[in-house]
């Protein structure tokens, strides 16, 4: 749906050239929710603004739905942009226009008929749950309601792509949840491709299918969200994953095992087991217990969700003969669990 090829962006700041994007190659599939996460200044804002050419890349091409935007004339670009909706951190609503008129704005730009506009606006007000607020002005709404107006407005022209520029960063946690849910619903209902940028990992965990981590103007890590979560490779990715991790394993627990005399130590193994998806709810541990003469002692654990996928992490103490313990680990791995031996 969206392909960025060899995209580079340099800015001229006080006659010095600053590189915001070094070399971005990225493909975003039709219908997916793609998240880009990075610290401020990493280039994520520039990246999303390159997709609808609010920022013109210095080099490279931006292909949206088969069309290279960098090769279009200004008027062709205006038409192409109507297929790409965008929502903003600070909503960017017209303060002088009612909610109704704000949503009608893109439709008026493309000169639709009055009755067509009215029908579309009413439908959208319904979709975002603001039907009672049509005649109000933005100043009379809360932040979450303003973003709903922004979303309705972005959907007015039935775009194929929705770009979200830090759409929830100015909202409180509860409102953020409701906006993310709305976006997720829209993605499912309309099959819309969503690209979002954020500095908050929980946003990624909540609704994204895939995530790209951007640092210093480069995508340093890319993959399905669950994979990146469970196995972050770059240290910056680990940092982001830490943000939302409620898995605080107390390292002192390991101390008591280290103090054990060698023969006894050999019969105690401590492992961390990660479950993802269906295995989370299968009686995997029980099955292993039945087939091997070992005991499990759960030291620590959490169960959580990544988008719609449940995942869990447990720290287990396996007590038994070293060979049996090794077999137990093998069994767990065979059942699709990720097992990491801690001690």
């Amino acid at each position: 749906m969206i392909t960025l090829q060899n995209v580079r962006k340099d800015y001229l700041v006080e006659k010095k050239s600053i590189t915001a994007l070094k070399k971005i190659d990225l493909t975003i599939e039709r219908g997916e929710v793609f998240g880009i996460i990075g610290h401020s200044g990493a280039g994520k804002s520039t990246l999303i603004r390159c997709i609808n050419l609010l920022e013109k890349p210095t080099m490279g091409s931006i292909i949206v739905d088969g069309q290279d935007l960098t090769r279009l004339s200004p008027s062709q670009l205006q038409t192409a942009r109507r297929e790409i909706g965008m929502i903003f951190q600070h909503f960017n609503l017209l303060s002088s226009a009612t909610i109704y008129e704000n949503i009608a704005f893109p439709l008026r730009l493309s000169k639709r008929s009055k009755s067509e506009i009215d029908k579309k606006v009413r439908d959208l007000l319904e979709l975002v749950g603001l039907a009672d607020h049509a005649k109000k002005y933005p100043a009379q709404l809360s932040g979450g309601q303003k973003q709903r107006v922004g979303i309705a407005r972005a959907l007015a022209n039935d775009p194929k792509v929705l770009l979200c520029d830090e759409a929830t960063s100015a909202l409180d946690p509860m409102t953020t949840q409701s906006i993310l849910k709305l976006l997720s619903d829209i993605n499912k209902k309309l099959g819309l491709t969503i690209v979002l940028i954020t500095h908050e990992m929980h946003v990624i965990r909540e609704i994204c299918d895939r995530v790209g981590v951007i640092d210093g103007g480069e995508i340093v890590e890319l993959g399905p969200v669950a994979e990146v979560f469970l196995n972050p490779k770059q240290s910056i990715t680990q940092e982001f994953v830490e943000q939302v991790s409620d898995f605080d394993f107390p390292e002192e627990l390991l101390e008591q095992y280290k103090k054990m005399p060698a023969p006894e130590r050999a019969c105690h193994q401590v492992v961390q087991v990660s479950f993802l998806g269906d295995t989370t709810f299968q009686p995997v541990l029980f099955q292993v217990l039945q087939s091997l003469p070992v005991q499990f002692n759960i030291l620590h654990g959490t169960i959580n969700r990544i988008k719609d996928t449940p995942f869990g992490r447990l720290v287990l103490e396996i007590t038994g003969e070293p060979d049996d313990a090794r077999d137990a680990v093998k069994h767990l791995q065979e059942r699709g669990l990720r097992v990491e031996v801690l001690l």
Partner: peptide, 29 residues
């Protein structure tokens, strides 16, 4: 607000539309 102008650009507004539908109404008072 610069952001509002940017919003209009992102929706494919022409320069004239930005003047007549964004700048002047927003600066009306």
């Amino acid at each position: 607000d610069k952001g509002v102008i940017e919003m209009a650009q992102s929706m494919g507004a022409t320069t004239w539309q930005i003047i007549s539908r964004v700048l002047l109404p927003e600066a009306r008072s």
